[in-house]
Structure formats: structure tokens, C-alpha cells
Simulated assay, not measured.
Amino acid sequence: MMDQRRLLSVNDLRVHFSGRKSGGLGKPLLIPVVNGVSFEVLQGETLGLVGESGCGKTTLGRALIRLGPSTVTGTIMFEGREISAISNHEFRALRKEIQMIFQDPFGSLNPRMTVGQVLEEVLLVHRIARGDAARRRIEELLDLVGLSREYRNRYPHEFSGGQRQRIGIARALAVNPKFIICDEPVSALDVSIQSQIINLLKDLQRDLGLTYLFIAHDLSVVEYISDRVAVMYLGKIVEIAESAELYANPKHPYTRALLSAIPNPEFGGKKERILLKGDLPGPMNIPSGCGFHPRCPSATAECSQKEPRLQELTSINNGHQVSCFLYE
């Protein structure tokens, strides 16, 4: 990867939440949710992030933009500048560069504000435009996301789920960002509407030169929109590769199990399903060694004792990285 193409670089990112043992008694605990994640996002690409519910995907995305009460350590570089240690005042200015599209298109909008007021608030807070200039910018944003300009006087409850998500996208675009974190932006929508929103995101990326971190659990959607895909398990990235390479040649046993669950659309087509034993452990019960070893069909004694590192497969030599002793 060329340095000049890196937009975001994350190194050893760890996120902890404060909590207590069952019953709320005892000393406060730090609950690990993201456990030493490192990755890069290149200018103009879409990096997909997949994994089971509870693996830390959304927490990772929120940590990049400082949303939520958590303790974050590690290094985050944006356009060559370290932003993990800057003050909240400095980070506020950076929010114009990094935006987020949320999973719930209704809960993320203020029900007491019209669409115009929702978008105008962003323009006013970031001192981008006011008055007639703000009105023109709001109309431009509605045009961008395929909504009528007349909708600016309506409230969120008057729209369908897909229309609300278009409003959420317009709000993210209002500040002309370079990088957008898409936190499961289509998971709450009907399948027929999902494709419209995904295609809208692809069109906006092409026309505006946007870069996405696309967080999702729908593997088919991720395959369609992503240039590269990272697979997350128990707060760690266990595999990362170009989208076509990962779906055609998955290496980590967990990735293979995830991909085996994708339905085969061909009539009569069959696919060998890899069923994992047990459930995803909680963040307070992370197994020793490789966190996946209790559920892994290929686990050895070494897997329970040592933790594999994420490393590039030299035999493939195209940026395909995997964290598994099968390839060390």
C-alpha cells in the first residue's frame, strides 16, 4: 500500500467500557470490546467490516469518531495526522472530514424537527451556511440523495424507512466529508429498498470521491459494495483481503464458516454448510490463545496456548492477511 494513498490508518486500537460484575457489586471493571485492531483504509475505497453481532464492529466505528462513553487507546492517523490524542475541541473541526450514517434511520433523526431543520442544524453548527445559502445547500443535498425539495418541510414520521435513510445520508454529506462510516445502513430496511440505498452510496462515492468504512452483517451486501473486506471476531480482525479474493479463497476457519452461510441463489444449488459449535463468548470470557479455538474445527493444542498474529500470506502476495496458526 502506498503511503500517499492512505486516508485512515489504525494501529493497535483497543476500546473498553466501564462496568461491574453481575449484581452491580464490587470494583468497577474495564470490559474489553475491541482488542488490538490494526488496519488501513485507502483513499476512494470501501472497506467492508463483517462479523457476528457482538464482535465489536459498531464499537470500532464509533471509536473512530469519538461517539459513546468508552476508553480508547491505540493510534488513529487521518491523512497522516494523529487524531487519537487531539483535544475534543480540535476533533470537532475534524468532524467535517469524518461523518457517520447510522443503522436506525428513524432513531437517528429528531422527530420534532423537519428535514430542513435537521440539515440546517448541521450547516449552522459547522458554520458552513445560513439563510438563503443554507436553503440552497439543503435543496442540493435533497437532490443528491434523490428526494424532492418539497420534503424539507416534512417531519421524519412522514417518510418510509428508505427515505429516512436518504435523509441520514444527506445529513452526513452536508459538511462535504472525505470519509464516512456506514454503520449497518441498510439492515433495518426491506430487501427491495436495500439495493436502492447501496446503489445510491456507490453513486455518491463515484461522484464525490468518498471513502467508506462499511459495517454490516449481510455478507452479500458487503461483497457487492466493498473493495476490501475485514472479518472481525471477538474484538479482533482475523482476516482481511480484497473482496473478490476473500470470497473466492477464504483462509481463516471463521471466515469459511461465515461464507458458508450465504444462500446459493441457483435452483437446486447446494453448498456445504460449516456449523460452528457453541456461541460467541462474552467480552468478559474471552478464551486464552486464539479466541476462536473453542469453536474452531481445525484447532490444535497450540491454539489454546498462544495468540496468532495477523500477517500477510506470502504465497498469495496480494495483501491477503490472516490470523491463524494454519498459515504460520
Score class of each variant (00 low, 15 high):
R164P: 02
V186W: 14
S9L: 09
G269C: 07
N317Q: 09
S84V: 07
G24F: 09
R273L: 14
P250T: 06
E82N: 15
S243D: 03
E82W: 10
Q165M: 12
I31Y: 08
A172G: 00
S323F: 03
Y247V: 07
I101M: 07
E97N: 14
K277N: 09
K270C: 02
G282Q: 01
L276S: 02
D104R: 05
R171G: 11
I98T: 10
Q311W: 00
S260P: 03
C55A: 13
R273S: 11
A230C: 02
L201S: 03
V186I: 15
E120F: 01
A241N: 01
S226R: 04
K306V: 11
L147M: 10
S187F: 08
L47N: 03
N264W: 05
V118W: 00
I128C: 12
H320F: 05
N318C: 00
P250G: 04
Q165G: 10
E302N: 00
L204K: 12
N264C: 13
E184Y: 05
N249E: 02
F325K: 03
R171C: 03
L275D: 10
A174M: 06
L208K: 05
H126P: 01
F91G: 03
N11L: 01
Y233M: 06
R309S: 04
F102S: 14
M113Q: 10
E97I: 06
A241P: 11
M2V: 13
L124T: 15
L147C: 01
E223Q: 13
V41P: 09
S323W: 01
E45G: 05
P265K: 02
E302D: 13
R166N: 05
I240K: 05
A248G: 06
F102R: 07
T46A: 09
V122W: 00
A216Q: 08
M2A: 14
N35K: 15
